[in-house]
Amino acid sequence: MAGAVTEKNPTGANSASASLSNGPGAAAVLAAGIGAFMVGLFAVLADKSAAIKSLMVFSKPTGPLSGVTTTAIVVWLTAWAVLHVRWRSKTVALGTINVAALLLLALGLLLTFPPLEQFPN
């Protein structure tokens, strides 16, 4: 997604300014897409592999769900922090980033659906 960064905000505006660039917003949106996708991806991985399923048991009473969601949240928040630092004063190609984020969100949604999650079992 590095190519989506088109220009640096010349004002270096802070968050309260009217000329705030779209970079921080794009970072939040793309990271949320990544987070949603990770929920679906880890759910599928835990379903397909007994080893991963076992690794994902962070809390025994809750089972693999605890690891699936905690890992996805860690990836999401890390992605948000990294993207925010990289894009906080930049103007980025939001259209491209929006499409990527919505695709990731849609994939995340689909991967959580059991008939797809368990395919081809």
């Binding site: 949106v29 990271a31 949320a32 987070g35 949603a36 929920v39 759910a43 959580t112 999650e117």
Partner: peptide, 25 residues
Amino acid sequence: MEWKEHVAWLAPISMTMAAGVMMQY
């Protein structure tokens, strides 16, 4: 339950993003 236990997590992720964007902009 298999769907509910995973899909529900998309709600806080999405809404935290929305709140974060609103806080900034």
